[in-house]
Design a protein around this nucleic acid. Structure first.
Lengths: 197, 197
DNA sequence: CCTACCGATCGGTAGG
DNA sequence: CCTACCGATCGGTAGG
């Protein structure tokens, strides 16, 4: 959870993220959110315009964070090989997911409850994100740095593993986020290469 | 979808699986299910006792299928090494997931909406299933057949990848289920070994 | 399998 | 941020 919300609006989003992660968007009422903040359901509407809007804010913020992480992970020098690029991508993803598992979990699972343009916009952004990884894999294969496999299947496999993380990760768990990032990067890169490097 | 339901009760479960997968359990009303069958909402209750009961039937059936698949994948001779055992486990999982993605998807995502004993029972069965894979990995590591890594992290990684499959898989997709099973088994086994075998 | 109906709860508004 | 309230919809029952 993003700690110590500075504004009321932000506190609502944080509480909503936690509840949406636990029960799902549809099974969480605005009164559930209000109760967690010790106010009346109707009072929420002084700060937000709708439940759907809160979901959108959460999903949009999460997507923006993953996009930014992927962007900065792409800043590796061109000399870096595909394995290192993929490793950087995965590490960046895991660090975002573990820094805010509530936000990430809602992003991963609850975007389906968005409607209209918001839904299609977030779908397109998710597709672009997955395409980034797919291209990294395809490039590495062309360069002979990765085993020849189906890049779309490989990207789905790896992203599936990454996306499940936000569901089970707990900040007080056995392993710190950095170690999980290392392990996930190792597993993913090894799954795509003949020799571990 | 499990085709050609022989009973009305089964037709309800199949339609419910498809809707629960698309929109989630909480966002699907009993009237949505009835509409898909061209009957009135109240008429559903001639065949089922509650919406929660339909969810339970679906989740229980899916869990039973995965348990049976894991069981028969374990019938490999003791001479078989950990990589082959894991390969068999993954292939079996992928074949169940692709044979019925609606059922599988509800099993993976909607069990949270179960309550009381049913919820804890299914959680325990999911844990046992994950433990199977974890033990396969730990054994392979002890035998020196797999790279030394954290078995719990590795099992979560692989199962996360497997569980995402039912979300995106479509029977009319580019690759047949058998090819996806091969790819997933390759990716997973390679992620755990130094050399692909 | 239908019509008619139930109490509870939903997201949200009015008006302070 | 509250009280009071709205119409719509929810899961489910009664009684054919």
């Amino acid at each position: 959870m993003a700690t110590a919300a500075p504004t009321r609006r932000r506190a609502i989003e944080d509480v909503a993220s936690a509840l949406f992660r636990e029960r799902g968007y549809a099974a969480t009422s605005v009164r559930d959110i209000a109760r967690a903040l010790d106010i009346q359901g109707a009072s929420l509407y002084s700060h937000v315009t709708s439940k759907a809007d809160v979901l959108w804010t959460i999903v949009d913020r999460a997507s923006t964070r993953f996009e930014a992480a992927a962007e900065s992970a792409s800043q590796l020098p061109p000399s870096a090989g595909a394995p290192d690029r993929i490793r950087a991508f995965i590490r960046a993803h895991v660090l975002v997911a573990t820094a805010d598992p509530e936000l990430t979990s809602v992003f991963v699972h609850e975007w389906r409850h968005l409607e209209g343009e918001r839904r299609s916009a977030i779908l397109a952004r998710r597709d672009r994100y997955e395409a980034r990884l797919r291209y990294l894999i395809a490039e590495g294969m062309s360069a002979g740095e990765l085993l020849p496999t189906d890049p779309a299947i490989a990207a789905s496999f790896v992203l599936g593993a990454l996306n499940s993380l936000a569901t089970w990760y707990r900040p007080d768990g056995r392993l710190p986020a950095g170690r999980i990032a290392d392990h996930y990067a190792d597993l993913a890169v090894r799954s795509l290469t003949e020799d571990h490097q």
